[in-house]
Amino acid sequence: MTLAADALRTTTHPAAHALASEGLNTHAGALPARRPGPTNSEPKAVRIAIITVALLFLGLFIALPLISVFYEAFKRGWLAYVAALVEPDALAAIRLTLLVAGISVVANVTFGLVAAWAIAKFEFPGKSLLITLIDLPFSVSPVVAGLVYVLLFGSQGLFAAYLQAWDIKIIFALPGIVLATLFVTFPFVARELIPLMQEQGTAEEEAAASLGASGLSIFFRVTLPNVKWALLYGVLLCNARAMGEFGAVSVVSGHIRGLTNTMPLHIEILYNEYQFVASFAVASLLALLALVTLIAKTLLEARLVEDAQ
């Protein structure tokens, strides 16, 4: 994450060139800061030892479990694997997970852009409070996040009377699962954008405004192009977390099969039912998602570095 952030900060701003004349482009003089190259002062043996330890650690704690997921999933062949995935409850879980992740990503992109825009480009009272609040989900246990919604929207909760009067179901239904997921994925997009936008400052927007661009036009032609890769990066992380979230969702789900079980919850149920192949088959989908995320992240980082040069 920090690697990408470093790279992002050095991005040049082609859109700014399009709008502002050369003289006005204040960023043109700021050359991308190069990361220092690898230092080779350590003796070779030390370097090899360190690399070996790192690789062993990664192999043991990340690669091996990942491989074992696929191994277990295909233990009884392709047919059993596919059967586990097309089973109605599994399909329902996959659909629900995709739906929840989709809603979370859209909501968090909207919120993240708005919050980052406000924080980076304007001064207002309560700004540091807002930054702290955005970070809150990182420090709160997901289980607590789920319980908070039970306390608010449960039938013994604060809004129980209103919800019952209007027959609105929040927890143990889709809205609760979305809320809990939103809570835990809240910081991902905003956190990627804020430092970048702060660094970029408001000079380009001011330049655009002085040339007569409208607010909307400034946003879509200056601000958004400047942060597009960071935004994509945030979306990627947000999506991965939204699909994988277990704790918060478990609390508000009610575990109704085929209805309120997301993929992680479905995996647990299958495992507890001694259906190990099915359980690992669904788990392998989540693992695949992780791999896709990883590849996308690598490509994205390459793109960011390219942009920086």
Partner: peptide
């Protein structure tokens, strides 16, 4: 507990 909290 879930039923008490509104699981229908």
């Amino acid at each position: 507990r879930s039923v008490i909290d509104g699981l229908e």
